[in-house]
Design a protein around this nucleic acid. Structure first.
Lengths: 192, 192
DNA sequence: GTCTATACAGAGATAGAC
DNA sequence: GTCTATCTCTGTATAGAC
């Protein structure tokens, strides 16, 4: 992919994180990227083209920082906790991504075109978490009667809910992390 | 409140549920309400006035159907489950409200004016659920070491997360209800 | 209170030069 | 590939009659 394209896409994520998908203005994006509006149309055809490309870009970034972070000494549940808490951090890149991701979800409610990309990434995330729960089960970290798929959907949906509350000012970041931590603790070798 | 106002507000909720807060067009709203655009400005001053009034209206509706539904024989946890599952139903009024409410949250991420109304309703909801968890604790329905406030935030944030996934097509309604039911079941007299 | 007609601004998109 | 200039459409908002 050309330099220019990525330059514009990076700017797009920034602008989306600030104004939302539906608040994205080509002129503002052009300013943020330091190029003319015409160039944006040249590279992305139209508004919807930019949006799709930007959302793909967000997905790719999301997949990246999902990768194994620190050593967790083979404790799958600890790794899971780390992976989920990753989304709830006040660091520019993470917050930007998380807000933009939330916007993608919110927009997909009304724009059916966006749903497919959303589903793919959501499923991938669910699967990652499901695997970790499965591993935790194998080593006795969680009870045998926990359904990994169900637990994964529970945890990821919860993270999304907490993120949006955080971004919309209805819960503090600290509190959100606390809720999540407690819920995960609740999975440690218990019943159901 | 005048007849006309409520007529317009009802239409507004419908339109918001269909196109989102940011997709609301005065002309479309006028058509949906069967009035002229000028009349809308007459009653609500400007676009933002309509939005605020519509969101208040949504809040009022939400508070209503939150009321005790069916007899639950004094089982607080059953009542809680019923109250939360209420949000996950494929019935026009509920879905409309739930979508509109999701839009309010999503818009509040970028529009700080909306946050106050959001916080108020969120807090009220949390408190209701917290009370029920407290009652359940009192009758031994949930373990003594469960923190009702934390549990309430967990459950309500989860419902929001599941709702949005449902509305954006990333989870089926049935599956969302299943996840929620299981999570609540996990609270029945257990540790943490 | 309610409508018709219209002014005005903002934002998406394109033409054409370099 | 990239820019400047500009066209055009859509959507908010108002004027003024009834």
């Amino acid at each position: 992919m050309s330099e220019r394209r990525t330059q514009i896409l990076r700017a797009a994520v920034r602008v989306i994180a600030q104004d939302g998908v539906r608040g994205l203005r080509i002129e503002k994006l052009a300013a943020a990227a330091g190029v003319s509006t015409a160039l944006i149309y040249y590279h992305f055809k139209d508004r919807s083209g930019i949006l799709h490309a930007a959302l793909e870009h967000i997905n790719r970034r999301a997949e990246n920082y999902t990768e194994p972070a620190q050593a967790t000494n083979g404790d799958p549940l600890a790794e899971l906790e780390q992976m989920l808490l990753l989304e709830l951090q006040d660091i520019d890149e993470v917050r930007e991504n998380s807000v933009a991701w939330g916007e993608l979800r919110a927009s997909a409610v009304f724009n059916h075109d966006l749903r497919k990309a959303l589903q793919t990434t959501t499923r991938a995330w669910n699967t990652d978490i499901e695997d970790l729960v499965g591993q935790a089960k194998a080593v006795g970290g969680v009870a045998a009667d926990v359904d990994p798929a169900l637990a994964a959907e529970h945890l990821t949906a919860l993270v999304e809910g907490l993120s949006e509350r955080w971004h919309s000012g209805s819960i503090s970041l600290h509190r959100a992390r606390q809720v999540l931590t407690q819920v995960i603790a609740g999975y440690r070798a218990r019943t159901t």
